[in-house]
Computed example of a mutant assay.
Amino acid sequence: MTLSKNIQFIAPDMNGAGLRIALVYSRFNTPVCEGLRDAALDELNKLGVKESDLLVTSVPGALEIPLVLQTLAKSRRFDALIGLGAVIRGETYHFELVSNESGAGVTQVTLDHGVPIANAILTTETDEQAEVRVDEKGRDAAKVAVEMANLQKVLKA
């Protein structure tokens, strides 16, 4: 089916000018997480988000990300949030716990507070897999945050 002129269509808006965005990243697996952070910040800059409209903070690990996102969402100061982390499989069940609970926590905050959250908490089998994904996933998170913030503004208008 093609879109006719009678169908209301909202096109993606990737203009970050005027958007307020907060970014929370994990310090666990530091090189990967700092790479995600740097890629996201570079992409936000390219999308027009001013540094003065950004807040960046870190937490010990992926399980702590949802709580800080929740606090930021409750503040109503931000148009979108970004969660960045890396959970790399080890030899114990801990990988599944951290992966599942951090993901569920981020989703719950989004739904409870209506604030878009770009979830870029990587879950990989190896360090190498995480390192390969750093730049792309960090940039993707920035794009998702901007697009979803703009979409929410249109839908709420």
Rank of each mutant, 00 (worst) to 15 (best):
Val49Ala: 06
Ala80Ser: 15
Val24Gly: 10
Gly35Trp: 09
Leu72Thr: 03
Asn29Met: 02
Leu69Ala: 01
Val68His: 01
Ile65Thr: 08
Ser52Gly: 00
Phe28Lys: 01
Pro31Met: 07
Lys74Leu: 02
Ala62Thr: 04
Ser52Lys: 03
Leu23Val: 14
Glu34Thr: 15
Leu84Ile: 10
Leu54Ser: 05
Gly35Ser: 07
Pro60Ala: 07
Thr30Arg: 15
Asp42Cys: 06
Asp79Ile: 00
Ala40Gln: 11
Leu41Thr: 11
Ala22Tyr: 10
Asn45Gln: 11
Val87Gly: 02
Phe28Met: 07
Val87Phe: 05
Leu63Glu: 00
Lys46Arg: 12
Asp79His: 12
Arg27Met: 11
Leu36Asp: 01
Lys50Asp: 12
Gly83Phe: 06
Ala73Asp: 14
Leu72Asn: 05
Asp42Phe: 10
Phe28Pro: 02
Leu72Ala: 07
Leu44Ala: 10
Ala86Cys: 15
Leu69Met: 12
Lys50Thr: 09
Phe28Leu: 05
Gly85Asn: 12
Phe78His: 09
Arg89Thr: 06
Arg76Met: 02
Leu41Ser: 04
Leu84Asp: 09
Arg89Met: 14
Glu64Lys: 04
Thr71Cys: 13
Thr57Glu: 03
Ser52Leu: 02
Leu44Trp: 13
Val59Ala: 06
Phe78Val: 02
Val68Lys: 13
Phe78Glu: 06
Phe78Lys: 06
Cys33Thr: 09
Glu64Gly: 03
Leu84Met: 10
Glu34Gln: 11
Val49Phe: 01
Arg37Ile: 13
